[in-house]
C-alpha cells in the first residue's frame, strides 16, 4: 500500500453512511480522555497526590519531567515541592540520563513522560544509563496502551513488550486510582528501577469495593468463579470485573486475578489459579497481543506444564491502531467490557 496515494485510513464525510447520518460521530476530544464511564466514581491525580505524600518524609525524592508535568500529574508534586521539581525540557533521552546522574548522587528521581517516548525513544538510555547500573529511578508514564485517540504516535501499544526485554526492570500496570496510589507508595519503597504505567486526571475508582491492597510482585484474586479465569493488569482488570458481572447474568462464573506487577510475575499465584482444573484462562491487557502479559503468562504455563482447557487473549491487535474516540476504539479493538464479555462467551 502506498500511503501517499491512499487509501486513506479515515472516511470522508460524504462517504460515511454507517449509523444514523443525522447523529454526529464521536469526537476524539482531549489528548487524554477519561477512562471513566458515565456516572463512575473517580479520584483526581492519584499519582501526583500519592507522590506528594510519599515525598514528605523522603527529601531524596525528586520529580523530573520532559515537558509533560501537567499531563502526567507530576505538576501536583511540583506545586508542593517547587525546589525538588526539575523541568528537563522536551528531551527524553537527556531526561533519563539526568535521572541516572541524580540517582548516582543518592537521589530517587520520579521521571515522567508519555509511555511512547520512554519506551521507543529513550530505551537505550534507560537500559544503559539506569537499569544496567541498577539505579533507583522510577519511570512513570502516561498514555499506556490505548488511552488516547491520537493515533500510533501517542498510543504505547507495545511498551510492555519493549520493557519486558530489559533485565532488572520492574514493570507495574495499576488498575485504578486506588491501585495507582498504593503502587506509588510501593514503588517508592522498592530499591531499583521501575517502569510504571500511569492513568492520570480523573481516574476511575473501583478496587475500594474489593478486599484488595497493592503489593509489588503479587497478583490478587479479586473474585472467584468456576468457568473462566481472567488474568489481567491495568484498567483491563476494571473491564474484566464489569465483564464478569455481565457474564454472571448469563450463568457464566468468571474469576478475576489482578496481576499489576507485569515483571517479575507472581508465578506462584498464577500457576496455582491457572492450575485449578476445568477453567479457561483469558489474559486481558491494555497492550498488543505481542510481548505483554498474555505472552508472559502463556510462556510461564507452558514452561511449568500447566495446561488449562483453553487459553485466549483479550488484547490489542498487532497493528498501528486508528485515531478516534476512546469508546469507539475500545469497542473496535475488543477491550471494552461489552466486547470482552462477547469474546469470552464466544470462546466457551
Amino acid at each position: 500500500m502506498n500511503r501517499k496515494r491512499g487509501p486513506w485510513r479515515g472516511i470522508a464525510p460524504q462517504v460515511a453512511q454507517s449509523g444514523d447520518p443525522t447523529q454526529p460521530r464521536l469526537t476524539t476530544s482531549a489528548m487524554i480522555a477519561s477512562l471513566a464511564s458515565e456516572g463512575q466514581r473517580t479520584s483526581p491525580a492519584p499519582f501526583g497526590r500519592a507522590l506528594v505524600e510519599v515525598a514528605r518524609n523522603r527529601p531524596e525524592i525528586v520529580g523530573m519531567t520532559a515537558d509533560l508535568g501537567k499531563y502526567t500529574d507530576l505538576h501536583v508534586f511540583g506545586r508542593e515541592y517547587p525546589d525538588r521539581y526539575y523541568q528537563m525540557g522536551m528531551a527524553e533521552q537527556n531526561l533519563m540520563l539526568a535521572a541516572a546522574g541524580m540517582a548516582h548522587e543518592g537521589f530517587v528521581p520520579f521521571v515522567t513522560t508519555y509511555a511512547v517516548f520512554a519506551s521507543r525513544r529513550a530505551y537505550d538510555f534507560i537500559s544503559q544509563g539506569i537499569a544496567e547500573e541498577g539505579l533507583n529511578v522510577k519511570i512513570c508514564c502516561a498514555l499506556p496502551g490505548l488511552t488516547t485517540g491520537y493515533g500510533p504516535s501517542h498510543q504505547a501499544t507495545e511498551d510492555l513488550a519493549i520493557f519486558r526485554g530489559m533485565p532488572d526492570l520492574t514493570i507495574v500496570d495499576p488498575c485504578d486510582a486506588l491501585d495507582t496510589e498504593q503502587a506509588t507508595h510501593a514503588v517508592a519503597a522498592h530499591d531499583g528501577p521501575v517502569y510504571m504505567r500511569l492513568l492520570r486526571g480523573n481516574v476511575p475508582l473501583v478496587l475500594d469495593e474489593y478486599d484488595y491492597k497493592f503489593e509489588l510482585g503479587r497478583a490478587k484474586l479479586l473474585r472467584d468463579g468456576a468457568d473462566v479465569l481472567v488474568i489481567s493488569a491495568g484498567f483491563m482488570t476494571m473491564r474484566a470485573l464489569e465483564a464478569a458481572d455481565r457474564l454472571r447474568a448469563d450463568g457464566v462464573a468468571v474469576a478475576v486475578l489482578h496481576s499489576p506487577t507485569v515483571k517479575p510475575l507472581d508465578e506462584a499465584t498464577i500457576l496455582r489459579e491457572a492450575g485449578r482444573t476445568g477453567r479457561m484462562v483469558v489474559v486481558a491487557e491494555n497492550h498488543s497481543v505481542v510481548g505483554g502479559l498474555g505472552e508472559a503468562v502463556a510462556g510461564l504455563l507452558m514452561r511449568r506444564n500447566v495446561r488449562p482447557p483453553a487459553f485466549q487473549q483479550v488484547a490489542l491487535p498487532d497493528a498501528f491502531l486508528d485515531a478516534g474516540a476512546l469508546p469507539t476504539l475500545h469497542e473496535r479493538y475488543g477491550i471494552s467490557a461489552e466486547a470482552m464479555a462477547r469474546s469470552i462467551k464466544g470462546w466457551l
Binding site: 540520563l97 539526568a98 546522574g101 541524580m102 537500559s127
Partner: peptide, 18 residues
C-alpha cells in the same frame, strides 16, 4: 553506548548542587 556520558554528568551536576 556513545553519547551517554554528558547527560549523566548533567544529572550528577544537578545532584551535587542539590
Amino acid at each position: 553506548s556513545l553519547g551517554i556520558g554528558l547527560g549523566i554528568a548533567v544529572g550528577m551536576g544537578l545532584g551535587l548542587k542539590r
